[in-house]
Design a protein around this nucleic acid. Structure first.
Length: 608
DNA sequence: GCCGTTTTCGGCCCGACTGTTTTCAGTCG
């Protein structure tokens, strides 16, 4: 983990400690806010703090919104010693096992603190003990129902309540959207939340439904076959847990039936919305939380108040919410109306992370899936793909692409059927021969060449020079230290025959951290050598990740968005790569896959 | 602990749902 991420995690931890200690809640949230500011910073604040004298570093740090003098001092202390004494002192006052209790569903800081101070609970085992011996029922607000919920939360936590990858979440969401659309009276169903923002992992699903009969929607929803548990159910909303079917080439043998009673599950919230207030609800439930807080503050500053029912004139003389007083909203039907009424340009969902999007003067023309005209990373039966060269090219043509590159694995990737030099030479001939069979698309010869741990490529230069496209990717030695990883990747992108740096870190979401190079150094080398950095679209990779894309775009680097095709359906992952690109504020012109054939082919030939 | 065309002190986003309460505290999104 980078020092920057470690500091963010430490401040987040401090925030939890403060909550458990019953400290001022605003002080606790200030720590959480500072953690987010540091985590999301484009500049490496810890490196900056190390490189400058303390006073100067402090001046720079407090320029970051959410970081004041105290947080700046903590960051500087962390940069030089790797610790923060004040946070160590907080940690010493709180039993470490309590933190895990905060992760239990329905359990917040007040409740954990109560377990601790009133019943001496210091960890999950202690909580289980007082549940089992019945002493929990003597505690405040702990009745039979509360204890039943607590038991379920403990069971869920031990079964692992981890987040879902974006691709898995969409699979579940689309199934539910289809079922809800079939409920009589329903005219519209839209996913909101982090799914709509295209975040790489999703904690739960939010579905917004337009219907004149909310009771029917709630009833149908909580009765759906995949529902394992109903968490809450009211007039206009319901929360349930739904089984998740595991399916991935990274998930061999882990398949679970979607409706089964065991295995992974995800929380799904459904809300029934009136059509004339749909924009307000969509805006509200899409988030992010931080984006919404700033949006509501902006409304207040303008004498307005924003909630999930609309944007209203603010009336401080009453506590009754405006929608209950029959007040007509200033805007509510669409998100665009609300943004406009707040003096903002329309902000695409992927940007709503409180990373400066509310200062935009015009809506950026972000990249879209329809901009993509070429695929530069695809495998055939020659290595570990399932398609022949001709089938691959036909599928690419069917999707409207002008270019497809055949990039099978190189010799070191033995487990993936990597090609020895002699076989690659044969394969090049086969690719050229296929051109006549699929007119209307350019089929390029290529290779996904391993970047060996020392940064050398897996074929000699003479062979690489025979290819139209070289995608250089790290596959092994993905735990090497940051300095070695930086040297490795810089060396690879500095090779004159490399066109694309494939899945630059090699991470697998929720599974493998991958390389953690000095990104700035890699980006500078890529830019200097006119090499594109790949956003690998597979939803288990999404590598580059969103924050890296934004840094790359800011640095003026070229980006390639590629599906790393192994099967026909891998082309469908394009939307995940594009949403990651959009989260990195990427516009089409920096993405080589959007270029017309002449420009793309000329770029690929440079250096050859 | 942060922040500032109403403020350097006194604010700090808003509502639904739940369970245990007789009017509300806590959690969640």
């Amino acid at each position: 983990m980078s020092a920057q991420a470690e500091l963010a995690e430490l401040l987040e931890h401090a925030s939890k400690l403060l909550e458990l200690l019953g400290a001022d809640s605003f002080r606790a949230s200030a720590h959480a806010r500072a953690a987010r500011a540091i985590e999301g910073s484009q500049v490496d604040l810890v490196a900056m703090a190390r490189s400058l004298p303390a006073q100067e570093a402090k001046r720079e740090l407090v320029k970051v919104e959410g970081i004041g003098p105290k947080m700046a001092e903590k960051a500087i202390e962390f940069a030089s010693t790797g610790r923060v004494a004040e946070i160590d002192a907080l940690a010493a006052q709180v039993p470490p096992g309590l933190i895990a209790l905060l992760g239990l569903q329905g359990v917040g800081p007040k409740t954990v603190r109560m377990f601790w101070t009133d019943a001496g609970v210091t960890d999950l085992a202690g909580l289980v003990r007082i549940i089992n011996d019945g002493t929990i029922l003597t505690l405040p607000r702990m009745g039979a129902k509360a204890v039943e919920k607590l038991k379920a939360a403990v069971a869920l936590a031990s079964e692992s309540g981890q987040r879902l990858a974006l691709g898995q979440a969409w699979t579940v969401a689309e199934r539910l959207v289809e079922r809800l659309m079939a409920v009589p009276g329903v005219s519209r169903v839209e996913p909101a939340g982090s799914l709509r923002r295209g975040k790489e992992t999703v904690g739960d699903l939010d579905l917004l439904v337009v219907s004149g009969d909310s009771a029917a929607v709630v009833k149908a929803f909580i009765g759906m076959p995949d529902v394992r548990q109903v968490l809450a159910s009211g007039e206009r909303r319901a929360s349930v847990r739904v089984g998740v079917k595991a399916h991935s080439r990274y998930d061999q043998g882990a398949a679970e039936g979607a409706g089964s009673t065991a295995g992974p599950s995800v929380q799904v919230d459904v809300r029934v919305i009136d059509a004339d207030r749909f924009g307000a609800a969509l805006c509200y439930f899409t988030g992010s939380k931080e984006h919404n807080v700033r949006l509501r503050q902006r409304a207040l500053d303008m004498g307005l108040t924003l909630n999930e029912y609309g944007l209203f004139p603010n009336d401080t003389s009453t506590n009754v919410p405006p929608h209950e007083r029959g007040i007509k909203p200033v805007a509510a039907r669409t998100e665009a109306e609300i943004h406009a009424a707040l003096g903002l340009v329309f902000i695409p969902p992927e940007l709503r992370e409180d990373r400066g999007e509310q200062a935009l003067k015009e809506t950026p023309r972000l990249i879209e899936t329809s901009d993509i005209r070429a695929e530069l990373h695809a495998h055939t039966t020659a290595s570990d793909g399932l398609l022949s060269i001709v089938q691959l090219a036909q599928e690419a043509l069917r999707r409207g692409f002008h270019t497809i590159a055949v990039t099978d694995h190189s010799q070191s990737s033995g487990q993936s059927g990597g090609l020895k030099p002699a076989r690659l030479r044969e394969h090049i001939k086969a690719v050229r021969a296929a051109r006549a069979e699929v007119p209307g698309i350019t089929i390029l010869t290529g290779s996904e060449v391993d970047i060996l741990p020392n940064g050398r490529l897996d074929y000699d230069d003479q062979l690489l020079a025979e290819l139209d496209v070289v995608v250089a990717s790290p596959h092994a030695a993905l735990t090497q230290d940051s300095a070695a990883a930086t040297e490795r990747l810089v060396k690879a992108v500095s090779h004159p025959l490399v066109n694309v740096l494939g899945h630059p870190t090699g991470r697998l979401l929720l599974r493998r951290r991958g390389l953690e190079p000095d990104l700035g150094a890699v980006l500078a080398a890529a830019k200097a050598n006119n090499v594109a950095l790949e956003i690998n679209c597979h939803w288990m990779r999404l590598d580059l990740r969103d924050a890296h894309v934004r840094a790359a775009a800011d640095a003026g680097c070229l980006i390639a968005i590629d599906c790393d095709v192994h099967h026909t359906e891998d082309f469908d992952n394009l939307r995940f790569g594009v949403s990651t690109a959009r989260r990195g504020w990427l516009t089409p012109k920096a993405c080589v896959n959007t270029w017309d054939a002449a420009r793309l082919h000329a770029w690929l030939r440079r250096g050859r």
